[in-house]
Design a protein around this nucleic acid. Structure first.
Ligand SMILES: [Mn+2]
Ligand SMILES: [Mn+2]
Ligand SMILES: [Zn+2]
Ligand SMILES: [Zn+2]
Lengths: 153, 153
DNA sequence: TTGTTATTGAGAATTATTATCATTTAAATC
DNA sequence: GATTTAAATGATAATAATTCTCAATAACAA
């Protein structure tokens, strides 16, 4: 009987096959991690995840693999981290991101009305539109509590 | 009689004053450049602009100044450049950006309906919303011609 | 299997960004 | 206008992020 981990690796392997990307253990585990994680991880988080899960990987391979997935429109890059790090997200179902400017926590909102703007973008600019991304910045509930406490003291 | 350049420097100086930011020649010229340019320049472009216009400036000051302006919500950062460079934009009137994935050209669309999504974001996430950014990716008309020509040859 | 070609990975090289701190400057006060 | 003081500048050092190199390895088509 297959474990959950083995199962997500198989799902990832199939996704790679259907995108005509050569299967490697590194690619499978990185893709399966992005498919199941809600953390919107950074390069460093992905690198650590792969190694702590018993796979060998180099930082160069993480960079190469993520670029490959971006080029295939499997994942998106989010410039969310005030530390200047990119964050990565499996992007099958259109959604947008709400990002805490204090702690960098990213949450999803599964609503695709923002995509409506692509029509006007085409008309106004003549660009051939490929995709679009929407990011909302604010303070998450946890950080609101911390900040409000700090102010009232 | 004031030249156009002197005039935009004065406008920038007033903007700094009204934001209680200490006036320096470097800050004035960087802000006036961002206010009048439609290029959405990178750090390097800003650095060169300031120097070629007869002002002394260091790269450190460009970085510091842009961070200061971002913190004061005078400008926004756009992670647009496939070369990994940030681009900067004076952001008084809400608008969004259409970015060519081939040549990195950025054009404005002055329509703020994308901001409507902020309401749902608050309701769904509990975040206290500060601002939001929308980016559309595609191929600009010039690059469409080049690419289509290449294919047909 | 075997052969071909693409991928991996360790470390070097490069590039981007931030930190340091002596010098200079803005602007508030006299 | 001169004095004062805190803040800004800038040359360069330090750090961190990303890309490059290329020999060894692995995928997979035939
Ligand atoms: Mn997401
Ligand atoms: Mn703009
Ligand atoms: Zn937070
Ligand atoms: Zn273009």
């Amino acid at each position: 009987m297959a474990t959950q981990e083995q199962n997500t690796l198989l799902v990832a392997a199939n996704k790679l096959r259907s995108n005509k990307i050569k299967n490697t253990p590194q690619r499978q585990v990185i893709l399966s991690y992005l498919m199941t994680s809600h953390a919107h991880p950074s390069i460093e988080m992905i690198f650590k995840y792969v190694r702590t899960n018993g796979f060998s990987v180099s930082l160069a391979t993480v960079y190469n693999t993520l670029q490959l997935f971006v080029d295939h429109n499997l994942i998106i890059e989010i410039a969310a981290d005030s530390g200047g790090h990119m964050r990565y997200d499996y992007f099958e179902t259109p959604h947008y991101h709400v990002i805490c400017v204090n702690c960098n926590k990213i949450v999803d909102v599964f609503d695709d009305t923002y995509k409506e703007n692509e029509k006007l973008a085409t008309k106004k600019t003549g660009y051939r539109i490929l995709n679009s991304q929407y990011e909302v910045y604010g303070i998450c509930p946890d950080c609101q509590k911390k900040i409000d406490t700090k102010i009232s003291v």
